[in-house]
């Protein structure tokens, strides 16, 4: 499989700040790739390096094998769905979508026809004459998507595309984006700080921390086998166990992660502690238990008996659920 985007030890420094610091990355053609991380972790800078709005301080970026380090944004065959959509306020929806064709010199008739086609693709037929100000947030997002797709880019970049939408709309758009990507067979690269979004939409993801990639892999790899404490903390609502506690619970003396859904409450065990909090989540209840310095969460499925706050309990789990991490951080 060809690689759509390739980073070779790419860095981007802003003065003393290392926004992106020696990143190696390969995004396969046709994949739905997520860059996940907290704000300031370098994920958005990476996206802007692909679109060309940032130049690398060091390293090389290739798009379909071509070194694009010196290619300005308007000559790159990638398009972006911007975080705030950045629709042109003075143009109607049809002209917004047709903009990319207009600047290429496509005539009015053909470009409007193609714009309508794109609007149909994002289920906005008949909205062509409206101004962006007259649309809802979800509709604007679809216009931004249609506008970015009209140039038939080889890579579509999405910068926090769903951040401004409410939960229900966001879930619907997640499914739709996924279906659209499948249908068009394009490479999608999207940036998000929402771990659920990244895990459910992407087929590969990179977790960013402080300008570096902390881990790269499939959602399952990353969820089940976080490489570092940071990944375990950020991606899952996983428990992160310090070496002493791992050992006390029957593992080796090393940092380990343990998913709450793998933990059961038991009457007796090697380590016991008081229940400090109960949080009802619908599908179950999250029970926090204090073991020494560490708080460990267990997800108790709905319908099972719950302990009272303050009750002393022990924890039980399948030893295979305990994942030992290589990195200390």
């Amino acid at each position: 499989m060809t690689s759509a985007v390739e980073f070779r030890s790419v860095s981007r420094h802003f003065g003393p700040v290392r926004a992106v610091d020696g990143v190696d990355l390969t995004i396969a053609e046709g994949s739905f790739f997520a860059m996940l991380g907290p704000s300031g972790s370098g994920k958005t800078t990476c996206l802007r390096l692909i679109s060309g709005f940032e130049q690398p301080s060091a390293g090389a970026i290739r798009i379909f094998g071509e070194d694009v380090s010196r290619v300005p944004p308007h000559l790159r065959n990638v398009n972006t769905v911007f975080q705030d959509y950045a629709l042109f306020p003075h143009l109607n929806v049809r002209d917004n979508v047709a903009y990319g064709l207009m600047v290429k010199g496509v005539g009015r008739g053909p470009r409007h026809a193609q714009a309508e086609e794109m609007l149909a693709l994002v289920k906005l037929d008949g909205y062509g004459d409206r101004k962006p100000a007259q649309l809802s947030g979800g509709q604007r997002q679809r216009v931004a998507l249609a506008r970015a797709l009209v140039n038939r880019p080889r890579v579509l970049l999405l910068d926090e595309p769903l951040g401004a939408l409410d939960l229900k709309l966001r879930e619907a758009m997640q499914d739709e984006l996924k279906a659209l990507q499948h249908r068009l067979g394009l490479t999608f690269v999207f940036v998000t700080h929402d771990q659920h979004e990244a895990l459910s939409m992407a087929d590969h993801l990179a977790v960013f921390n402080e300008g570096k990639i902390a881990q790269i892999g499939t959602p399952q790899d990353i969820y089940d086998r976080p490489a570092t404490r940071f990944v375990a903390d950020f991606v899952g609502s996983s428990n992160v166990l310090p070496p002493a506690l791992t050992r006390a619970l029957g593992g080796p003396e090393a940092w380990a992660s343990l998913r709450p859904e793998a933990v059961r409450l038991a009457a007796a065990g090697p380590v016991t502690g008081p229940v400090t909090a109960l949080r009802y989540l619908g599908v179950g209840t999250r029970v926090a238990v204090r073991l020494g310095e560490t708080e460990v969460a267990a997800l108790i499925p709905a319908g099972q008996p719950l302990p009272a706050e303050g009750e002393i309990v022990a924890l039980a789990f399948d030893p295979s659920a305990l994942h030992v991490m290589e990195g200390a951080r």
């Binding site: 308007h74 000559l75 972006t80 911007f82 705030d84 629709l87 042109f88 600047v103 970015a148 140039n151």
Partner: peptide, 11 residues
């Protein structure tokens, strides 16, 4: 944003 969007679309 909109100036970048314009460049992004090839202008």
């Amino acid at each position: 944003g909109i100036l970048e969007a314009s460049a992004d679309l090839g202008a």
